[in-house]
Structures are given as structure tokens and as C-alpha cells.
């Protein structure tokens, strides 16, 4: 886990600005960060700027074409499409932006701890992690959702739990790179306890890898969340959600393609934005994830 040579190891705040500057200096990073910021701002101010009530139905305007009153037309219940699209990301962003830090936190701590401990216990844990990873994500999610229901209070811990499991692997691998280095040996020789070593020597060094991993997890979580909504296991109507909107509008595609196109563009731009930012962040931190496998 080598640091990029150009980055000075200054005080934390300074380094944050350096990394941010590095991300913005790359065209892909600047575009990505702009997309993500726009979506975050929209999610916060959305309710204040939407032209119509997102639940207001109008039988006369069912599947109406875009007009000056309704810029993106109306959906199959005559609701204003623009208002629903503008609000459609709030639930997804809310759930995933709480679940992502959760996943990185618990996966990262467990990974670092077992990476340091090593031995039999570590072997057993990795087998369990492998077993979890060999099940498709959708199966794991669905079993929990069918058990506990589909509310936000179920989705956040469920996503946080399952998406933390691959983080264990990343954190463990990053820890293995650091553990053999001199300063960890020195800390051991000084007689520091395990927790002190984790807190003072390991975490600062695996932190970068966890940040990048967290950014990637966020985009995968959004993907999972919207797929669940699309399949009918996520957000329940009438809450506007892009995945659910695409599922609803799918049957009317030939009359009103805008119904699927608008939420698709929104969802895709957010996910692509996160990915571009994550890539730029990885490069700015001097971590190469070009060779990393999907999953």
C-alpha cells in the first residue's frame, strides 16, 4: 500500500484538500464529483422545488405527453413525472448513505482485527466470508427482506451487513501489507496492546483503501437498492423511487417512453458519477484498482 510520491503526509485537513484538488484536476473526477454533488443537493432541496405534489393523480392526464405545464409528461396515474423524478432518489440516497459507512465500519474493523490476529481463527473467518460471497447478493437480501419486511429500518441494516462482508477481505488484505512493516514491529516491541496497534498504526494505513472501497460499495448498494425496488421488494408506493418508477412505467413504454427514460437517466447519472469519483479518488490516493475483479 504505497503512498503516491506526490502527496505530502501533512495534517489531515491539508491532505483532504490535496486529495480533493487531485480529484478535481482529472476530467473524470470533476465530472463525477459534479454529478454526485448535484444529486445530493437535489435530494436535500427536492421537496422545496418540485412543481406538483408527487401523489396528486389526474385521470385526464394519464400518460400525457410532455407539455409546458408538465415538462416530462405524466405517468400512468396522471401524476407529474418531473416532480416524481426529482424526488425519486431521496429514499435510495438516504438508505445507502447510512448503510455504506455502516458496512465499511464493521467490515473494516473485523478485517483489520483478523488480519492482525491471523492464525486458525482468521482461516475460519475467511472460509465463512467465502461462503457468503458465493451466494448471489439478491438471494441473501431477499431472505432477510421476506423475513423482516421492506421498510427503511430493515433495508439499512441488511445492506450494511451484507456489503460489509466483502470489505472484510479488503481490510484484511490491506492489513497484511502493513503488519509486516517495521513500525508495527516497533509498536509491538514497545509493548503496545493489540487495540492500540490497530488504532494508532493499522487504521491510519488501511484508511485510504477503506475510503475507496466505501465509495465503490456505495454505488453497488444503490444498484442493489434500486434493483430491489424494481423487483417490488424495496420502496413501497406511492413513494417515488427510480427503480419502482421504471418497473411501473415499463408496461407503457410504447405510449410514453419518457416514463422509463427519465428515471433511467437520473439513476444512471448518479451511479456513474459515484464510480467516476471513486476511480479518481483511488488514483489520487495512489491506489490502483484497475486489476480488481468485479463482485
Amino acid at each position: 500500500m504505497s503512498q503516491a510520491p506526490t502527496l505530502p503526509r501533512g495534517p489531515a485537513r491539508n491532505r483532504f484538500l490535496v486529495v480533493l484538488g487531485d480529484i478535481l484536476a482529472r476530467p473524470s473526477g470533476a465530472i463525477g464529483l459534479a454529478l454526485v454533488s448535484a444529486h445530493l443537493i437535489l435530494a436535500i432541496i427536492g421537496p422545496a422545488i418540485v412543481p406538483y405534489d408527487f401523489t396528486e393523480m389526474n385521470a385526464a392526464a394519464m400518460l400525457a405527453k410532455p407539455s409546458s405545464a408538465h415538462w416530462l409528461g405524466n405517468d400512468h396515474l396522471g401524476r407529474d413525472q418531473l416532480s416524481r423524478v426529482l424526488l425519486g432518489g431521496r429514499e435510495a440516497i438516504l438508505v445507502t448513505s447510512i448503510a455504506t459507512p455502516l458496512a465499511v465500519l464493521w467490515g473494516g474493523l473485523v478485517g483489520v482485527f483478523f488480519g492482525l490476529a491471523g492464525g486458525r481463527l482468521d482461516e475460519v473467518l475467511m472460509r465463512i466470508v467465502d461462503a457468503f460471497l458465493s451466494l448471489p447478493w439478491i438471494l441473501k437480501m431477499l431472505v432477510l427482506i421476506v423475513t423482516f419486511g421492506t421498510g427503511t429500518e430493515v433495508l439499512i441494516p441488511t445492506l450494511g451487513f451484507f456489503y460489509g462482508i466483502p470489505v472484510i477481505r479488503i481490510a484484511r488484505a490491506a492489513t497484511h501489507d502493513v503488519v509486516a512493516r517495521d513500525f508495527v514491529q516497533a509498536a509491538r516491541a514497545r509493548g503496545h496492546g493489540r487495540l492500540t496497534i490497530i488504532w494508532r498504526e493499522l487504521l491510519p494505513n488501511v484508511r485510504d483503501a477503506l475510503f475507496v472501497e466505501g465509495a465503490m460499495r456505495w454505488s453497488w448498494m444503490l444498484l442493489a437498492f434500486s434493483s430491489l425496488s424494481f423487483l417490488g421488494f424495496g420502496v413501497s408506493p406511492p413513494t417515488p423511487d427510480w427503480g419502482l418508477m421504471i418497473a411501473d412505467a415499463r408496461g407503457f413504454m410504447s405510449f410514453s417512453p419518457m416514463g422509463v427514460l427519465a428515471p433511467m437517466v437520473c439513476l444512471s447519472s448518479l451511479i456513474i458519477g459515484i464510480n467516476l469519483t471513486a476511480d479518481a479518488l483511488a488514483k489520487a490516493l495512489g491506489l490502483d484498482r484497475a486489476r480488481k475483479a468485479p463482485v
Partner: peptide
């Protein structure tokens, strides 16, 4: 490639249906 990888499968699938069959 990056777009194809990151966009959810149900979005690309729906887009395919819209373009090639509708």
C-alpha cells in the same frame, strides 16, 4: 464499458427492450 458495468442490469435491459423491440 464503464457505463455498461455500472448501470443496473434492469436499466440496460429495459433500454434494450425500448430500443430493439418497441
Amino acid at each position: 464499458a464503464i457505463s455498461a458495468m455500472t448501470i443496473p442490469e434492469f436499466v440496460s435491459a429495459t433500454l434494450f427492450i425500448l430500443i430493439f423491440s418497441v
